[in-house]
Amino acid sequence: MTTHSAVAATSKGAFDVIQVPTPVPEGDEVLIKVEYGAMIAFDTYVTDRGYMVNEFPMTLGFSASGTIDQVGPNVHDFKKGDRVTAFTYSDNGREGLKSRFKALQEYTIQSRKKVAKIPDSLSLAEAATIPDNFVTAFYTIFSQLGLPIPSSFPATTPPPLASTPILIYGAGSTAGVYAVQLLHLAGYRRIIATASKKHHDYLRELGAHDTFDYNSPTLVEDVAKAAGGDGKLLLALDCITAEGTLAILGKMLSPLGKVALLLPIKQGNTVTNGLEQEMYFELPDEKNPFPKGTEVILVRTFLYIEDERMSELMPKILPDLLQHGYIKPARVRLMDSSFGSLKERVGAGLALLRENKISGEKVVVKMVD
């Protein structure tokens, strides 16, 4: 049996480089030789807590880039050698995580529906930053919040709610960066972004109309002034989704509004608050800070593929956006050989994520030297 190296959580609180079987693609699958794998805070949950892990070892990483190595018999739009990026999670989102699909390994197998070709102008390291957060932003905006998908990007005609203020809370996150870009491309002109001050110029460059420091003591009043009217928002997206951010948004939303929360909901104020941090996938009434009537949408990105409108998101929509330069990748924080062995690179990346030392960047691990 052919095997390859993978970086996996081996038990609660431990990870290592292990050998795993190299699969052969079937049906509409492709086998990708991984050059770079990206990590997110969720990888610390898996490693440190065994969060949502049914069985160890569990390979890490939710986005990968590299080249096509083999294609299944039903695949006709990819070929060996194509440069690609992929959203690396179980093809059936309801089954949760499965190691054979994950990013931090020498080879990953994927359905063609989760893979996008990338232009020569885009580096593989940059490409690894895109899939998970791009898909999250697109799915949240155009499926969960219910805004119409434009017939083309950029939109040729303004959408019905083009002048409606839309808040992206935590817009300096990679999901927030893509949300701002997509809303701007879709024709929305009153995008309100909250982020650290250091991200404000960049977010305005991407299309944000107003930017505010989410640490400001006058944030609620500032956003209300920018929103105009009665000062209450009809549309918002929380890219952090912690109890502290929900409490702030609760003061901003209209009873007639919608707010999308990127799950899981975290205890405290940030995406990582230590091993004792509680996380949950529902919003109990006693923890709901929103006005009565506000529609609270709990976003489970792994289910995006169940929306038929999303089936060509990676194979067709993303490549077109990248080819025309309409979507800019997140900034790369590269973990390469200067950090040591493959295990040491991943350990350094986990530490950055665990300690909240990443903002406006994506941790990317170079898998091969």
Rank of each mutant, 00 (worst) to 15 (best):
P119C: 08
Q181A: 05
T241N: 09
Y89D: 11
H209W: 13
Q70V: 09
A116N: 00
V368E: 15
E106D: 12
R354G: 13
Y202W: 08
L303S: 09
N92T: 10
G257E: 00
G207H: 07
A236H: 01
T194L: 00
L124Q: 00
G250W: 04
D222V: 07
E26C: 11
P284Y: 04
R94T: 15
Y51W: 12
C239Q: 08
P291C: 06
P158N: 02
P284R: 03
K251A: 09
K98C: 04
A155E: 06
Y178E: 01
D230E: 06
A155K: 13
T157V: 12
L256K: 15
A247I: 02
S337I: 14
T211L: 02
E35W: 06
V346D: 05
S111M: 04
D222H: 09
P148I: 01
C239Y: 02
N269A: 15
F134K: 03
D369C: 12
G172L: 04
D69A: 11
D285R: 15
V53E: 11
T211Y: 00
D213Q: 08
R94F: 13
E312P: 07
T140S: 07
G37L: 05
Y280G: 09
T140K: 09
T22R: 13
S123W: 05
G207W: 01
S254I: 02
S338Q: 12
D48K: 05
R94M: 14
V7C: 12
G187F: 06
I240C: 12
T67P: 10
F15N: 06
G81K: 05
S341Q: 05
P319L: 11
K357A: 11
T270R: 14
D82S: 03
Q110F: 00
G229P: 05
H76G: 13
L104T: 09
T164I: 05
S311C: 10
A116T: 01
P148N: 09
E295Q: 15
E106L: 10
P159M: 06
H209G: 13
V363T: 04
Y280N: 10
T10R: 11
A330D: 10
I192S: 10
T272R: 15
V46G: 12
A260S: 07
P158A: 01
D210Y: 15
Y214L: 00
A14Q: 14
V115W: 05
I191P: 06
F302T: 12
L352V: 02
S359K: 04
A193E: 13
G293I: 09
K328M: 06
F134N: 03
I130L: 10
G229D: 08
G244S: 06
V30Y: 01
N269M: 03
L161W: 10
G176K: 03
Y304H: 05
L147A: 03
V259R: 11
T194I: 06
R309W: 07
T129M: 04
K258M: 10
Q105D: 09
T136M: 11
T157P: 02
I109H: 07
E35G: 10
K251W: 09
P319M: 03
D201N: 13
E282I: 14
E308C: 00
E106M: 00
G13C: 05
F153A: 00
A193T: 08
K113V: 14
A116H: 00
I305P: 07
L249N: 10
T245L: 04
S63M: 00
F78P: 15
F138D: 01
V220E: 13
D369R: 12
